[in-house]
Design a binder for these strands. Structure first.
Lengths: 146, 146
DNA sequence: CTTGAAGCTCTAGTCGCTAGAGGAATTAGG
DNA sequence: CCTAATTCCTCTAGCGACTAGAGCTTCAAG
């Protein structure tokens, strides 16, 4: 039985994130000390490590919720878990393809940059002119910092 | 002079998004009709097309804001714009490397899936066991739907 | 002149956290 | 046993980049 800080250190998940996971029901409400502080067990540590690994692999929390509920019923078929992982793989591959296109477009912009004034700047030019870009009208692969 | 719907159709940017861009100062406040409806010019259309292209290339709005302010001063050096694009390229490449690692980990999980019961499921197993994963402790490349 | 599409403002929700305020509890050292 | 430092608590608000919906007004076509 250890407090939240030790759990955080052991799993590499930050303290507020652990509380957030509890709030959204990914982690069970733990026991408390007389002074209302959370006390965790080894079981919860393992559950959180599972979540952490899955997050590292890019699974959204909803998929992790599903995987956890599967792993709580160990006698059943593996097919559902397999399917979730397969879907995640597809997501990752799609995102990679999209990024490869972006990288190439950026590289082309930079390759041809005259390093002169803004008026001749390929970067600005490509972004401003409809005809010069690769013109992929899928969803933007943007946002979301490291 | 045309209304917001036509601007949306012409650029492929949704109507609420256009209003949002105005709200955060990426687009200027347009003229209005007597009945308070927005009226846009060709200039704004081009500005919005620029934003759209840059978003498609994954530039965050703050970088776009900077690029726009650069392109408003066409006599200056291209170096700053070049630098922004270079940074974006680095971001994209880092993200790709991260995704490649995820893809490989997912692929390995699936390759070895016994297709049996949950108890033997490689997917669950890998996520639960610290020792089995590739153990890259960078930030998660997660979230963010298409 | 009526109807239906398109416009308006405003608020709240999405995802997965992160940051901060303002306080209470625990723990290590003296 | 007491103090000081650290950790913990709850709560609210914010990030980026939108998206959705309520409830209303204005415009264009027939």
């Amino acid at each position: 039985m250890f407090p939240i800080g030790r759990l955080a250190k052991a799993t590499g998940v930050k303290v507020p994130t652990i509380r957030y996971y509890e709030q959204i029901g990914l982690l069970p409400e733990p026991e408390r000390t007389a002074g209302n502080q959370r006390l965790y067990t080894q079981g919860t540590l393992e559950r959180l490590a599972f979540i952490r690994h899955a997050r590292d692999l890019g699974f959204p929390l909803e998929a992790i919720r599903e995987l956890l509920s599967l792993s709580d019923r160990p006698g059943q078929s593996c097919a559902a878990a397999d399917e979730i992982a397969r879907r995640q793989l597809a997501v990752v591959e799609a995102r990679m393809a999209r990024l490869a296109a972006l990288r190439d477009a950026l590289q082309r912009m930079l390759d041809h940059c005259a390093s002169g004034t803004i008026a001749d700047c390929r970067v600005i030019e490509v972004l401003g002119d409809h005809g010069l870009c690769a013109h992929d009208h899928g969803a933007a692969e943007a946002g979301h910092p490291a």
